[in-house]
Design a binder for these strands. Structure first.
Lengths: 154, 154
DNA sequence: TTTCCCCCATGGATGCCATCGACGCACGGC
DNA sequence: GCCGTGCGTCGATGGCATCCATGGGGGAAA
C-alpha cells in the first residue's frame, strides 16, 4: 500500500469504470503494472467490488430516516435476533451497533411519510425485544462523499 | 422506468463492472437495447456514476463515528457556514440536516480514538456556531446494503 | 379492426482494450 | 557484487462496445 495504490483507489472510487489504460495514466504508471496492482487490490479484498451509484430519489425513495433503537437487553441473543430481522428488511441501508445506551443506529429509505409509517408498523415494530425507538428525518443531505481518504501505511 | 430498468439497476448496484453482454443476459434482453437503456439511465441521471467499494478498515480507517451537532442558530447563514466547513473535511463521509433539535448528523471515519480526537479538536471544534456535539461510535456494522430497492413507477 | 409507432432481436463491421507471456532494466537489501 | 522486486515495452490474441441496417411483434389510438 504505497502512494500509487492510494491514487489508484481514489481514482477508482471516483469512477469505477475507468479502463486500465486511463487508470494507468491517472496514477502515472504504464497499463501492465497498473493492471497488476489492480488485480492484487481486488484479490486482497481492499477493493470489495464495484457498484453503480443510483439516485435514491429518482427511483422512488426521496426520504432517508435515521432510527435509533434501544433493545430491552444487550445480550448476544437479543442482538442476533434483531440483526437477523433487520437483514430481511430491504429498506434498511445500514445498521450499526453503537456505543451508549441507544444501542443501534440505522438508516432506512422510504417513499414518503406514509410509506415510512407502514414500514414501522408492519416491519420494525414487530421485531421482538425493542425497548424504545426514535426516528429523525434527513431534510437535506449536505455532503455525501464517495471517496474515502486513503492513508499510505507503507 | 419499468421492470427491466429495475432489474438493470439492481444488477448494476451489485456489480457495476458487468459488461453489457452479461447485463443483457441478466435482465432478459439482447445487448443492443440493453445498452440503450443503460445510456438513457446514465443520461437522465438515474445512474449517478460508478464507484469501487473500498474496505474502509483496510485503508486505515476502521472506525466510524456518528456525530450529532446542534448549531447555535438555525439561520441559513449559520447552516451555510457549517456546510462549507464540513465539505472541506475529507473524513466526513456524509452529513445530513435533520429534523428535531439536534440539527445535524454526520458520519466521519477515523484511524483510532486518538486520530478522532485530533479531528475533533483541530477541525470540527474550530467551526464557529456550534452549540453542542455528541459522538457515538459504531462498534460493529450489522448491515451495509449496496442495493437500493427499486420501485417500478411506470 | 386496422394502422402506426415503439421497442425489440439479429447480424455484421470496426476499433478499442484487457490479458498474457516474455524480456530487459533499475533500484535496494544483503 | 549478487539477487529479488517491480516497472517498462513489445506483440499477439480474443472479447467486447459501439454503430449501422433490417425485420418482426405487440400495444394504443383512430
Amino acid at each position: 500500500m504505497d502512494a500509487i495504490d492510494a491514487r489508484l483507489l481514489s481514482a477508482l472510487q471516483r469512477d469505477g469504470r475507468q479502463t486500465v489504460t486511463d487508470l494507468a495514466a491517472a496514477v502515472g504508471l504504464s497499463p501492465t503494472p497498473c493492471a497488476r496492482r489492480l488485480a492484487r487490490l481486488e484479490a486482497e479484498g481492499v477493493i470489495e467490488g464495484y457498484s453503480a451509484r443510483v439516485d435514491q430519489a429518482r427511483i422512488g425513495f426521496p426520504v432517508s430516516v435515521f432510527i435509533q433503537v434501544e433493545l430491552e437487553s444487550q445480550s448476544k441473543d437479543a442482538i442476533d435476533t434483531f440483526e437477523r430481522a433487520v437483514r430481511g428488511f430491504d429498506r434498511v441501508m445500514e445498521c450499526h451497533l453503537m456505543t451508549g445506551t441507544r444501542d443501534i443506529l440505522m438508516r432506512v429509505v422510504a417513499a414518503d411519510l406514509t410509506d415510512f409509517d407502514r414500514f414501522l408498523e408492519d416491519k420494525l415494530m414487530r421485531v421482538p425485544g425493542i425497548r424504545s425507538m426514535r426516528s429523525s428525518f434527513a431534510l437535506r443531505t449536505m455532503v455525501r462523499r464517495q471517496v474515502l481518504p486513503v492513508r499510505v501505511s507503507a
